[in-house]
């Protein structure tokens, strides 16, 4: 086993070079370079957590803004609805008024027309009576030879009509 056979001859060289080389590794790589590598990792982890926090904050802000917008929107909508309802009510009222006015005009004209019709009917009936009385007096004179005046014939005509 060379490890034991050569021990006496090589131990000092092995120990010396190991200490020298491992010492260099420790101071140059371990002390010099590893902390920088770990700093990079720590920096990255910090950046990632910062970015995540910023994203979280931005999302919360967006949520708040959306809620505010929704509230505003709801208010606007309610206002618009109210405006529409008011306009509708106004329009309905004005229509009703106009309708009422038109109705009154129509009613008045109707009564007037009815009155005129009644008058016309009355005058027509009187005229018919007159004509009928004259005709009746004429018929009586011709048939019976009795002179009857139209005024005398009128009650009989009235009765027959």
């Amino acid at each position: 086993m060379p490890q034991i056979e050569q021990l006496a001859a090589t131990y000092s060289s092995q120990i010396f070079w190991l200490l020298l080389i491992f010492g260099l590794v420790f101071f140059i790589v371990g002390k010099g370079m590893v902390p920088k590598v770990m700093d990079t990792v720590a920096l990255r982890d910090k950046q990632i957590s910062d970015d995540l926090a910023a994203a979280e904050a931005a999302r919360n802000k967006a949520d708040a803004e959306e809620a505010a917008w929704r509230e505003r929107e709801n208010a606007n909508r309610a206002e618009a609805q109210a405006l529409i309802a008011k306009a509708k009510a106004e329009a309905a009222a004005s229509t009703e008024k106009k309708l009422a006015a038109a109705q009154t005009g129509i009613d008045a004209r109707l009564t007037e027309a009815e009155a005129r019709i009644a008058e016309a009917r009355a005058s027509a009936a009187a005229e018919i009576e007159e004509v009928a009385s004259e005709a009746a007096a004429d018929i009586v004179k011709r048939l019976a030879g009795i002179e009857v005046s139209a005024a005398e014939a009128r009650p009989a005509v009235k009765e027959a009509m």
Partner: peptide, 17 residues
């Protein structure tokens, strides 16, 4: 007074380093 010969062991330590 101690032997510090550069050996194959030394060389491979250096290569590893």
């Amino acid at each position: 007074g101690y032997n510090i010969a550069i050996t194959n062991s030394t060389v491979w330590m250096a290569i590893s380093a």
